Simulated scan of single mutants.
Amino acid sequence: MAERKHGIPAPETDSTVYTEDWDREIGERDRHDRVAFIGLDLCETTLDGVKFESCTFRNARFNCSTLRDVAFVNCTFVGCNFFEARFTDCKLVGSMFDRCSFEIMEVDGGDWSFVGLPGADLSSATLTGVRMREVDLTGARCQGAVLRDVDLSGAWLHSADLSRADLRGSDLSALDPTTSEIRQAIITAEQAVVLAIALGVQVRDI
């Protein structure tokens, strides 16, 4: 399993829930703490205002799900599928993703600060207006991804591939162009100055 930042261990869980348990009654609750969800099938499900804290999701399927104002705080996702899942104003602070799939995932707003996405394939994902402070994108594959108006301040971007990604409006102050791939990325003139300064270039008016 991929390690969390600074080697912080995943939180322990106190109970286990399977799809049949979720369908019977567990799914009606609006808060879940320290629960291990195993093989949960949430395909095409809509979740609104539910809070999960220190939970673990293993081999869960969120395909084509709609999540609005849902909180996954300090949660762990292992082998989960988020194909065409849509997150709107969700909070995932401190959560960790390991060997998950994110094809055509959309994220609109919300707070994904301190999230662990090392090595994640986000190449077909669209993230707009998201707060992702100190997110771990080490080695992430974001070729052609849309990361617009994203707060990436303090992000871990070493070896991340951002080639052809649309980065307009995002905070790139933590991006080191010498350790990340950014060829053909789409940025604004203001962002170009930030990257030039990171390269040690002196930017002056004529």
Results as ranks from 00 to 15, higher is better:
2 A>G: 07
3 E>N: 05
7 G>W: 02
9 P>V: 02
15 S>F: 08
16 T>L: 08
20 E>M: 05
21 D>G: 00
30 D>P: 01
30 D>N: 09
30 D>R: 06
34 R>D: 10
36 A>W: 15
37 F>R: 00
37 F>V: 04
37 F>H: 00
38 I>P: 01
43 C>S: 15
44 E>P: 04
44 E>F: 12
48 D>S: 14
49 G>M: 09
49 G>T: 07
50 V>C: 05
53 E>K: 12
56 T>R: 05
58 R>Q: 11
58 R>K: 10
63 N>I: 11
64 C>K: 15
65 S>D: 04
65 S>F: 01
73 V>P: 01
73 V>D: 02
76 T>F: 04
77 F>M: 03
78 V>W: 13
80 C>R: 06
81 N>W: 13
83 F>S: 07
83 F>R: 13
85 A>K: 14
86 R>E: 15
86 R>P: 09
93 V>D: 12
97 F>M: 08
98 D>L: 05
98 D>V: 10
98 D>Y: 14
100 C>R: 09
104 I>M: 14
105 M>C: 07
112 W>Y: 12
113 S>N: 11
117 L>N: 04
117 L>F: 10
119 G>W: 06
123 S>K: 06
126 T>K: 15
127 L>S: 14
128 T>D: 11
129 G>Q: 05
132 M>S: 03
135 V>Q: 00
136 D>G: 01
138 T>K: 11
147 L>G: 01
148 R>A: 10
159 S>A: 13
161 D>G: 09
162 L>V: 04
163 S>G: 15
166 D>P: 06
166 D>G: 09
166 D>I: 08
167 L>I: 04
167 L>W: 04
175 L>Q: 00
181 E>V: 09
182 I>D: 05
183 R>F: 10
185 A>L: 03
193 V>N: 01
195 L>Y: 13
199 L>E: 13
203 V>E: 01
206 I>Q: 08
206 I>G: 12
